[in-house]
Amino acid sequence: MATEVIWWIFALGIIALSAGVVFSRSVIHSAIFLIGSLAGVGVMFVILTVEFLALTQFLIYGGAVTVLVLLALMLTRADPSGRAEKVNGPQAPFALLAGIGVAAVLLVAALSTEWAGNTESPTNIAIEAISQRLFEDFGLPFILASVLLLVALVGAIIVARQEEGE
């Protein structure tokens, strides 16, 4: 019972914070809402008893990604005076319709499907199981993912760095 209450609090929180991200007029506010939303997702992982992923979520999103986003925001501030700029494009009303459409489609699909298996309660996923899968069965993709990160790192540096004469 307690779990359900906690779940509902965090679910509504995630939705509210996500709505804050996409509706807020200030980019800084949006970024802060995003931190909250991502942290809420981490809590969801805890409720789903996948603590390892929750930790990863906090570390990577809460730590790395959000900091990166904030840095980028600061580097790309067009107007340091903070004068209000139009944050939404001209197609925003249609975007709202599209978003509602996506939500409707997804909800209909998710709720109308008869899922095979135990849909009532989650099973505990032990960290040992994850490590076993990750390092044994998915060993090669894991290594490739590390290569991908390296490539992205190098690529990002090359794209973003100040070239001579610029």
Binding site: I15, S37, N88, L96, A103, A110
Partner: peptide, 27 residues
């Protein structure tokens, strides 16, 4: 306990919000 459908619904709503954001935002 929380049924699976709740997670799916939550995910759908957050995803739709993301879609809206991608389509509507300029920055």
């Amino acid at each position: 306990m929380v049924p699976l459908e709740n997670y799916l619904a939550l995910s759908a709503i957050v995803f739709a919000l993301g879609v809206y954001g991608v389509l509507a935002r300029r920055n």
